[in-house]
Design a protein around this nucleic acid. Structure first.
Lengths: 200, 200
DNA sequence: GCTAAAAACAAGCGCTTGCTTGTTTTCAGC
DNA sequence: GCTGAAAACAAGCAAGCGCTTGTTTTTAGC
């Protein structure tokens, strides 16, 4: 039963399994069974189990990089830029829950060389965020006691999303991103203040 | 070579290995080697590999619960309470990096029954946070558009800590907790506002 | 210094793992 | 409907896994 897009189907099934069971707990036989073929037949499409993990995580990394680049290169106000960057980041997660989860949770299972490639892309991504924040501070729009810390907090909070977001839930990605940006920009004590882009 | 506290030593080594390699990628032989004995000898101290994982995660859960309970039961102002809760949460992570990482990252590797026990404790912990936040809102000290969302954001951000905190770094747990609370309470746009406990 | 229990060793069992090999089936292009 | 290539099958291998068993060594209490 050959089939067009078989390879993509395998990647999808592998993503789902890696997400729910983890990379090491998922066997080649699990993946092949989910794909409707025998384990040996898998190797007509892939070279190794780790290839699957790498391709999934690398695609994930590229998605984050692509979506943030377009935001960073725009000529918006820093506050709007931050908001847009958050929306972009969150959209990548909500639109690709399986791949994003594998990207965050399983990339360390890669062997040395390939892990370095992913690490490099993670660094690049964080550097873009750092630039975005420092630009906002230079223009006097952010009050960052500790820019590096702020960056880590934002990304930690945003990345946590993959652990609790359910596509069938009541919140759309945009609503999630909005609430997110509101809290981060203004905090949640009752004082007025902070800045909101009500024009959206 | 018998030794007092051998069991604790094994738990510690297992925590370190589970943290760096993950539960499934860590073998009984890895753990026994790190403990300075042969793999068979391990079973004089533990019943199974999963027992190790459960004991580590369960201890982690109990640490979080204990530390938050003492904060919740105090009679402080909600803002101070929130700050104290954050400090407590962060202290548990920074003081027990290995166990905390295993607790956050590997608990899903537990089998059904024991995973449910941990899940229950996680729920209990989150419920305490929910109560803490709703109390703050009732007393008019927080402005929470979406309390559930706020709770998820706080915990996501705080839990991310285990991925980047290094004990040998420049920030002490208290400094981390302070910066944390500042941002979450006041946001980081440049407007004044938010509430800070400068008396500390 | 004797003794019983606890701890560690030495060896290996049964099973699962990722992957390979040799063969058969399916399919597209003519 | 023939043909070559791609895909799937059937069988199984070598290695590593968690764990057990039978024996020896170490230890604490008298």
């Amino acid at each position: 039963m050959p089939k067009v897009g078989r390879r993509e189907q395998i990647l999808e099934k592998a993503s789902q399994l890696f997400r729910t069971k983890g990379y090491h707990a998922t066997t080649i036989r699990d993946i092949s069974e989910a794909s409707g073929i025998l384990s040996g037949s898998l190797y007509a499409h892939i070279k190794s189990k780790e290839d699957l993990l790498f391709e999934i995580t690398d695609r994930g990394a590229e998605m984050f990089l692509r979506s943030l680049r377009s935001v960073v290169m725009s000529e918006e106000d820093p506050v709007t830029k931050l908001r847009n960057a958050l929306v972009a980041h969150i959209r990548v997660i909500t639109d690709n829950l399986e791949a994003a989860t594998v990207f965050f949770h399983e990339w360390k299972a890669l062997t040395e060389e390939r892990r370095r490639i992913i690490q490099q892309k993670r660094d690049e991504y964080e550097a873009m965020w750092a630039r975005l924040l420092s630009e906002g501070e230079e223009k006097g729009r952010f009050r960052l006691v500790d820019p590096k810390f702020a960056r880590l907090l934002i990304l930690s909070a945003a990345n946590g999303l993959y652990q609790w977001y359910h596509p069938e839930g009541e919140l759309s990605p945009e609503e999630v991103a909005d609430r997110f940006a509101d809290i981060l920009l203004s905090g949640f004590t009752e004082s007025e203040g902070g800045e909101k882009d009500e024009s959206r």
